[in-house]
């Protein structure tokens, strides 16, 4: 009898507590919110472009106190992001696991089918930007136009060095575009990060690169390197003198996505929370300023629109890798 009374009292107490809990929570934030620190996986190493952006997003969220629990950045660059993708796929708590991603999101699962990663199962959160690419040369080369570039690169044949980030990734895809479009045979030499690639050009150890604006910014401002043309649909504000390849008659447009993705199996309430969170980040002054400064393009995308974008991009990458013989 006494046991039953205790049980009843305890149950009543528990119900009362949960009611109070719900009402407090209900007022504070509508719907789902993280119950513990969120794993914020970065699909690249510390100090790279993806890492810098991830840390900026984290900072904006923290500064404005938009998340009741902090985002904990964890770098997982292993295997061109293979490790990060598998980590996300096997996430024990999909509601508290999100990732900052780039184009290896498409290429790594394509090139390493053994991982068993299907990006269509991942939860779309937000596309925050698309980074742009330009063709760069050293100012001492005297090259100012794409025509002059083609002439010089043709003369040097396979001794023309194109430095780029990683192997069978974005930079090499672009190098292949140029080789195919203009009948060149530039030699592609891979380096570990965009900063090192930029330095190879500034130190004249390479003849050209296809860096992002943020990677060449310092050297460009000092007048050491020159952008010849952009792989974008329209000219970039920052480089008004560099035409697009489209203007030059080659329909070559290529972007690097900067997106946030959630683990497969994330609940729709949790997905809605993160989508709202990153939309706020996207609209923040800090992010808009950063986009402008780094010549970023690509509007905010989320939900099924983002998933369709991924599916389309994956097919584009599949055919590009096939052409290169990498699949």
């Amino acid at each position: 009898m006494r046991i039953l009374t205790t049980k009843l009292i305890l149950t009543g107490f528990a119900i009362a507590v949960s009611f109070i809990g719900i009402s407090i929570f209900g007022e504070a934030v509508a719907g789902w919110s993280p119950k513990k620190p969120v794993q914020f996986i970065i699909m690249a190493g510390k100090g790279g472009g993806a890492d810098k952006m991830a840390r900026l997003m984290q900072t904006v969220i923290e500064k404005n106190k938009w998340s009741p629990k902090p985002l904990t950045p964890i770098n997982k660059p292993g295997g061109s992001g293979a490790e990060a993708l598998v980590h996300l796929k096997q996430a024990k708590d999909p509601n508290h696991t999100i990732m900052v991603t780039l184009n290896s999101f498409y290429t790594t699962p394509l090139r390493q089918p053994a991982l068993g990663v299907d990006i269509a199962t991942f939860t779309p959160v937000a596309r925050m930007a698309e980074d742009t690419f330009l063709l760069w040369v050293h100012k001492d080369s005297g090259i100012k136009t794409v025509d002059a570039f083609i002439k010089a690169a043709k003369a040097k044949g396979k001794n023309w060095i194109m430095a780029g980030t990683g192997s069978l990734q974005e930079d090499q895809l672009l190098t292949d575009f140029l080789n195919a479009d203009y009948g060149l045979s530039m030699k592609y030499v891979p380096y570990k990060g965009g900063g090192k690639v930029a330095k190879q050009l500034a130190g004249k150890h390479a003849n050209s690169t296809v860096n992002n604006p943020s990677e060449q910014e310092g050297f460009y401002k000092a007048g050491t390197t020159v952008p010849l043309a952009a792989f974008t649909p329209s000219r970039l504000e920052m480089f008004p003198n560099a035409p697009t390849f489209r203007e030059l008659g080659q329909d070559r447009v290529y972007f690097m996505q900067r997106s946030v993705v959630g683990a497969p199996g994330m609940s729709s309430e949790a997905a809605a929370f993160y989508q709202g969170l990153f939309e706020k980040v996207y609209k923040s002054d800090d992010w808009q300023k950063y986009r402008k400064k780094k010549s970023l393009m690509g509007d905010f995308l989320s939900g099924s629109a983002l998933k369709d974008y991924w599916k389309k991009e994956r097919e584009i990458h599949r055919s590009m890798l096939k052409k290169m013989g990498a699949l």
Partner: peptide
Amino acid sequence: LGIPGSPTTAILLGGMVIWGLVPGP
């Protein structure tokens, strides 16, 4: 040069970018 000489400076560099400074010559 805007090129990190070590992993730690790579992060410092990220910080500078966020603060709105452009490392380089």
